[in-house]
Each structure stands twice: as structure tokens, then as C-alpha cells.
Amino acid sequence: MPDVFAVPVFVIVFRESIETVIIVSVLLAFLKQTLAGPGRDDQVYKKLIKQVWLGVGLGLLICLVVAGGLIGTFYTVGHDAWQSSEYNYEGAFALVAVTIITPLGVGLLRIGKMQDKWRVKLAKSLEAPISTTGSKAGWLKRFAEKYTMFFLPFITVIREGVEAIVFIAGVTFSAPATAVPLPVVVGLAAGILVGYLLYKGGVTAKLQYFLVAATCLLYLVAAGLFSRAVWYLEQQKWNNIIGGDAAELGVGPGSYDISKSVWHVDCCSPEFNGGGGWSVFNAILGWTNSATYGSVISYNVYWIFVMAMFVALRYKETKGALAIDEGEECTRRFHRPG
């Protein structure tokens, strides 16, 4: 069994693909809910769907290229080149993902309330030619906004895919090569199935509940991501201090910086050996067996920020002179600043 099916590889692929498909399926469901249907903005819908899939496709392509390059590098230069700053990349990817997810969540929640306003705005922003008044930074922002539907899946696929590749590469050093392909395929299939169910559920179940549930999940993931981003950056520093990959030390003493530790248990690591079930726990809830001041504080700060944001939004909505306009402003703030 271990010779043909490396369980850690399966878990890694499954976990990474779930993270990806949650976001992709939510996007697709959202687009379908808001834009699909005869007589509506079919063109825009198709265009955005295309963007999503383009993002997924390009992301996958880049992953494949990276995988190819990595395999090449691993077997020529040795595997240390990437590993030496692996966590910095992970941390950066996670931070980018959080900054995208956070406003997206607001958008998701407001779909129900503002569906058509939102749709119109979205359509406008996607259709309308870019205004010429903005500065360079403004242009970049607008560009990113215009292609949100592309960038989000794109970044997500790259991040998760590269993470999966790196993890698999790491795991396969201790597992026979024959044990890799099958769990990769099964993991992907299982992940896509979950995504499909989510998507199906998303379009047929009661929309608002689905959106709220999906958003809650999304924010849970985002809080975990934010915490992990900090954790990754700290862990990279620690790796640099000890001059190696702390994960090679397992989960015992030395795998973490004691002076920054809030808790550490010598088990249940989401990183070590693929992480098993703990990596799923980690992906969804941000669990870590080795919490640092940075990771705990960032997790809580993120939630406090999110809570404050929604309370403020609600306050504006209810106390604002013209709720619809306020809502529109909020929407604009998050989706089309200025």
C-alpha cells in the first residue's frame, strides 16, 4: 500500500485542491447567480466565466512549469535552492490571497442585498473603458479590479499548486516515486468532486444561506491564511537562524523558536510529513501545533478587523441617510475605489 499510495501526498493534494475549488466554485456560483440566464448580461457572464477559467488554466499552467522546473532543479542543483526560502514565498502568496479574499467576502454577502446594483457595477467596471484620470497606482488598482475574476483563481491556483508541488517534492524524498501519481490523481478527483458539489449546492440551495455559509468559510480560511502568512515568514526566519529546514527536525525541540512560542505540542503538525488530517484542519481553521505570538495575534487581529468592518458597514447601512447609496459607496469602496 505505501508503495503505490503515499497518504501524505493524497492529503496534500486533496487539501490544496479543496482550498482552490472552494474559491473557484464560489466564484462560479456567484457569477451564475448574478449574471446567468437568458436575457441578462450573457456576454459579461461568459466573459467573466472565461476569466475565471483562464485564471485557473493559467495558474495550472504556471504550476506545471514550476513543477517541471522544480523537478529539473531538484535533480540537477539539488533541492535546497527553493527550500531555502520556501516559507517566504508561501507567506507572500498567503498575504496576497488574504488581501483578495477579505473584500471579496463583503462582495459575496452583499450579493443578496445588492445583487443587481452589484451586477451593474461589476458589469460597468468590467465593460467601461478605464478612466484616464487616475495615477499609476490607480491604474494598477483598476486593472486588478477589472480582472478580479481572473486574478483570484489565478493566484489561488498558483499558490496552492506550488505549495502542493513543494510539499509533494519534499514528501517524495522519503517515499518511493511509485507512490506519488495515484494519490495525486485521487486527491485531485476528490477535491474537484467537493468543488462540484459546492458549486451545485451553491446554485440550487437557498442562495443567501449558501452565500453566508460560504462567506463564513471563506473568512475562516482567510483568518487562517493571514495567521499562516505571519507564521510562514517567522518560520522562514527561524529556518535561516538554524541554517536548515526546521521541518526536517520533525515536531520536537528545535522545530520552532522557543522565544516566540505561545504553545507547542510535539504532534498534530500540519506541516510535518504532509500533515495528515491536521493539514486540513490547518487549511480551514488555521490550526498550528506551534503557535507563535505573531500567528496568534495576527489571527485575532484579523478577526477583529473583519468584525469591525462588518459592524461599521452595518452601521452605515442602518444609520446612513440613504442606505442604498451608502451600500453603493461601500461596494465601491471595496470594489471600485475612487
Partner: peptide, 29 residues
């Protein structure tokens, strides 16, 4: 560690609750 974990859990649950509260609240407009 226990305080940190409990605080994080409470924060997470509260956060989810706030998200749900906002998402389910009727649009005043």
C-alpha cells in the same frame, strides 16, 4: 497557550457570527 487558543477560538466564533449576522440582516434600504 490555553488562553491564546481559547481567545482565538472565541474570536473566530464571534467573527463567524458577525459575518453571518451581517449577511443575514435585512437590507434597510
Amino acid at each position: 497557550g490555553i488562553i491564546a487558543l481559547v481567545f482565538s477560538c472565541v474570536c473566530g466564533i464571534l467573527g463567524v457570527a458577525v459575518v453571518a449576522w451581517y449577511g443575514l440582516a435585512p437590507d434597510p434600504g
